[in-house]
Amino acid sequence: MAVSITTEIKRNFVIEAPLDNVFEVLADVPTSASYFPKLEQLTDLGDNCYRWALKRIGVDKHSLQTVYACRYISDRAAGTVRWEPIEEPASGDDNSIVKGQWTLEAERDVQGNEVTRCHFSNTGTVTLPLPGIMKLAASPLVKHEFNTLIDDYTENLQQGLAS
């Protein structure tokens, strides 16, 4: 039996760095991933596709690991970096489907310095090997964990990229 839990996360924030610098980091998946907390492994699948394996959460046999693969599409003129799920090549361990986008806008702060307004949106569905009755208990925990990961990720980017 399996339970699927979907999370939708949106964040809007400013990074105190020029748009070109922020875009360069976010468009380079391995560099961007270096800011992501609890990442166990990032595997380059070629053709700008990557498999993410997050560190296990939980205890012993009651732990889970989120694994998914995405293709990344960057458009500097539009200021976007998108990711969409890929099905092949499947590792057999994939248990999630993830898609989303960064949208970046150049702005000036009150001192006139160039900063970047970042709009992050992500939708993910993780499938867990749990009985259906557990969905009510697992859903808020999974959603909390993913929200915490994204909050830490955006904070790491803000601190790491600040001019």
Rank of each mutant, 00 (worst) to 15 (best):
V3P: 01
S4D: 12
S4N: 13
I5R: 12
R11Q: 14
F13H: 10
F13P: 07
A17F: 14
V22G: 10
V25H: 07
P30M: 05
T31H: 13
S32M: 13
S32D: 13
A33Q: 10
F36R: 10
F36Q: 11
P37L: 01
K38L: 06
L42S: 02
L45C: 04
G46S: 06
D47P: 10
C49L: 00
C49S: 06
A53D: 13
L54H: 05
I57N: 04
G58C: 04
K61H: 04
T66G: 00
T66W: 14
V67F: 05
Y68M: 03
A69E: 03
R71V: 06
R71C: 06
R71E: 05
Y72T: 02
G79T: 07
V81P: 00
V81L: 11
V81N: 05
R82W: 02
E84Q: 06
E84V: 15
P85Q: 03
I86C: 02
A90M: 03
D94A: 12
I97Q: 08
V98L: 07
G100S: 03
T103K: 09
L104C: 10
L104S: 09
A106L: 01
E107R: 11
R108N: 02
R108M: 01
D109Y: 09
V110E: 14
Q111W: 04
G112K: 10
N113H: 09
E114A: 09
E114V: 04
V115A: 11
T116G: 05
T116L: 11
R117V: 08
H119R: 14
H119N: 10
S121Y: 00
G124C: 10
G124S: 15
G124Y: 02
V126D: 06
T127V: 07
T127L: 03
L130V: 03
L130R: 12
P131V: 08
G132E: 11
M134E: 02
K135G: 07
L136H: 12
L136R: 13
T148L: 12
D151V: 09
D151I: 07
D152I: 09
D152N: 12
T154C: 13
N156L: 06
N156E: 05
Q158D: 07
Q158N: 04
G160Q: 15
L161V: 11
